[in-house]
């Protein structure tokens, strides 16, 4: 589904990604772990098409299509979703209005009519129940005055609404208390299917207790230095990243 080949990327002239290779197939959950500054969030931004990052080498393919010249919104239409680490506030725009616009823009790109209001309401009801979201929350301005947990839950709500093929969750667990984490994880698990894929970016093993990955990759200095099954996460938790840094330095 998603194929990353020898990906190099710069930000402000500084190389952050130094040759990433990763293949994510439909139905799989991949976790990407690594210390601060290893390039995890950069990888997420590059996949989503943020042009503050310059791809200098390599490629990102979605279902066989090279995404190089594909705009961020077109990537979204094709099924790429990024749950932001720091979701931005848009004052005066309600969550509902934002989602309505996003869904209808995607439909327009596919040559479809706007979703009828009745269907939209049904979808909102269904997905907000899935994430145990209070309906009042949906009429508030997007992320304005939201707590850290509310912001993250709202990101996953959007993911549920947009039903992406590849969802990248960038540190979705940070800022969540244990109850919120459980709700978010259970939401993600319910959204998982054999037709979509999830990439979890995280510091900690904690999230992986709730969303069990098929593969774990460790990113260090812009490269994947180790890949393995879910047990790799536990090993990291136990030994810390220094262990890996030493191992890869050898």
């Amino acid at each position: 589904m998603l194929k990353i080949k020898d990906l190099h990327a710069n930000v402000e002239g500084k190389e952050i990604l130094r040759g990433i290779n990763l293949e994510v197939k439909a139905g799989e959950v991949h976790a990407i772990m690594g210390p601060n500054g290893s390039g995890k969030s950069t990888l997420a931004s590059v996949i989503a098409g943020n042009d503050n990052f310059e791809v200098t080498q390599g490629s990102v393919e979605l279902e066989g299509e090279d995404l190089e010249d594909v705009s961020p919104e077109e990537r979204a239409h094709k099924g790429v979703f990024l749950s932001f680490q720091y979701p931005v506030e848009i004052p005066g725009v309600s969550v509902t209005n934002f989602m309505k616009t996003a869904i209808n823009e995607s439909r327009k790109a596919k040559g479809l009519e706007d979703m009828p209001a009745k269907d939209m309401l049904k979808l909102i009801r269904e997905k907000s129940e899935l994430l145990e979201i209070d309906r009042k929350f949906l009429s508030r301005s997007l992320n304005e005055g939201f707590s850290g947990g509310e912001k993250k839950r709202n990101e996953i709500f959007q993911m549920a609404m947009l039903e992406p093929k590849v969802a990248i969750l960038d540190e979705t667990d940070s800022g969540l208390d244990i109850d919120a984490l459980r709700i978010v994880a259970s939401g993600v698990n319910k959204l998982k299917s054999k037709d979509n894929a999830v990439i979890l970016i995280t510091h900690y093993q904690r999230l992986l207790e709730y969303i069990v990955p098929d593969f774990v990759h460790v990113l260090h200095n812009g490269k994947i230095v180790k890949s393995g099954g879910k047990e790799l996460a536990l090993e990291l938790e136990e030994k810390g990243y220094d262990w890996l840094k030493q191992e890869t330095a050898v």
């Binding site: 989503a48 098409g49 919104e73 934002f98 616009t101 996003a102 823009e105 947009l162």
Partner: peptide
């Protein structure tokens, strides 16, 4: 803000309209 909207499938013009209308 623009990139956030783009990532949700909303192009830049529509994103500006949305932000301005919210404002």
């Amino acid at each position: 803000q623009i990139f956030y909207c783009n990532q949700r499938g909303i192009d830049t013009e529509k994103a500006i309209a949305l932000i301005v209308n919210g404002f």
